[in-house]
Design a protein around this nucleic acid. Structure first.
Lengths: 227, 227
DNA sequence: CGGTGGTGTATGGTATACCAAAAACCACGC
DNA sequence: GCGTGGTTTTTGGTATACCATACACCACCG
């Protein structure tokens, strides 16, 4: 993981503000912000020159990132990429658990049999070779599974609100100490969740999802070392 | 309820951007956006002149409101105050239910006996004369109760995420048809919730809060007429 | 009278110059 | 050598001029 900002050329977007926003977000996502030598300070003028746009749209993009909690703008001091504290990460996972358990509840009523079958396949496809994979890839698959459940709730707002949470949670995965059994047990949980959804067991699906995500919370609490 | 923007003089704040943001938000909150003759269109230059600030900080404030979903900015078309659809309102209440039920769960573990006693008093103070009050005032007291529960979870993120939801839900209360028994039954629910919290009954507190808020969802679904 | 094309205007987007405050730097004196 | 005061530099905040596009209006033509 790089410890310096990797600025990608601005692609196609609607406005320069949006382009700058996406480029910055992508750059921050690639950055290992918890590395000791990470470059956490941003400079408006330098970025402006690097992107080839003026400060105005760039500032609007930075302002948006500030509101989302990715960067912290201090007047006449500087703009800093935010390092979430461990307590904040734990809170995010807690909120995630709340939202996803509600999504599971809704999914038992809103999702079609076909959609649930697709989710079932998704889990199966990882149960075979997941153990052989690197933890990082498992983490992606894991998030993919959880986002799929949220999608099945048919509630757009749940999608929007969890998107930001996943971004930050993803950022700390390389700080997570590998625990051998965790991936395997996680897949067992996933299978149980899918079974509850397919049985249209609303209460059980909600409970399993909540407990599963709160397990992750405890795991991060115990095995992630930041701050 | 006024149908025109009520611009208040910019008070004291840190930056002009923040002042403009707060003034605009307050103005929008005072506006009955669902009135047929409501002024939903905003004009950057006109607002800039009215506030006595340049377009730059004003645009940053508007951009933030756009991200929060209060206004909708369309390039070279205009800036419009957003009228949430009924479906969106229902989604917001659903998410609210998810977040507050988790808050109740946490509160059974995090809140002190004194804090719960305070919540108990809050409910009692409204059980006596609530029926005599106007529905609007009851609505405020209602939101106050729910925010209190979220506060007792000791989870800042839950506070932040529900704040926006309450804003929009508050905006539709004058469109809610008065249902005579609802305030009374709501208070019964509240008392049960407080009892569960005081008994430290995590599962029951979570369930009661969720069911209570989902009741509101159904009520809005049936008795609120927008779109 | 109705449709169509062109020109003018309104409006959000962008670039740039300037401002004020905070920090860094440096010279000076003890 | 170290602290202290002032000056320079850095940096985010603000004001303003200009740009590009979507829309409206109107003249012109069929």
């Amino acid at each position: 993981m790089k410890t310096q900002l990797q600025i990608v050329p601005i692609g196609d977007g609607q406005s320069l503000k949006v382009k700058a926003y996406e480029a910055l977000k992508a750059a921050i996502m690639q950055l290992n912000i918890y590395a000791p030598d990470a470059e956490l300070r941003l400079d408006e003028r330098a970025l402006s020159a690097r992107f080839g746009v003026s400060r105005t749209p760039l500032r609007e993009a930075l302002s948006q990132l500030d509101q989302e909690g990715l960067v912290h703008i201090v007047a006449r001091r500087g703009i800093y990429i935010v390092r979430k504290t461990k307590a904040e990460i734990l809170e995010m996972i807690t909120v995630w658990a709340a939202l996803e358990s509600m999504a599971a509840r809704l999914a038992t009523k809103e999702a079609s049999d076909e959609e649930l079958a697709g989710l079932h396949d998704l889990v199966d496809s990882f149960s075979g070779d997941a153990l052989a994979q690197k933890l990082g890839e498992y983490s992606d698959a894991n998030i993919q599974f959880h986002q799929a459940i949220i999608g099945l709730s048919k509630c757009r707002l749940l999608d929007q609100m969890t998107e930001r949470l996943f971004f930050h949670v993803r950022a700390i995965r390389q700080r997570t100490i590998v625990e051998r059994d965790r991936a395997r047990r996680s897949i067992v949980d996933h299978k149980e969740i899918v079974a509850a959804l397919e049985a249209r067991d609303t209460e059980r699906a909600e409970r399993l999802v909540r407990e599963h995500t709160l397990k992750l919370r405890d795991h991060v609490d115990r095995f992630v070392d930041i701050d």
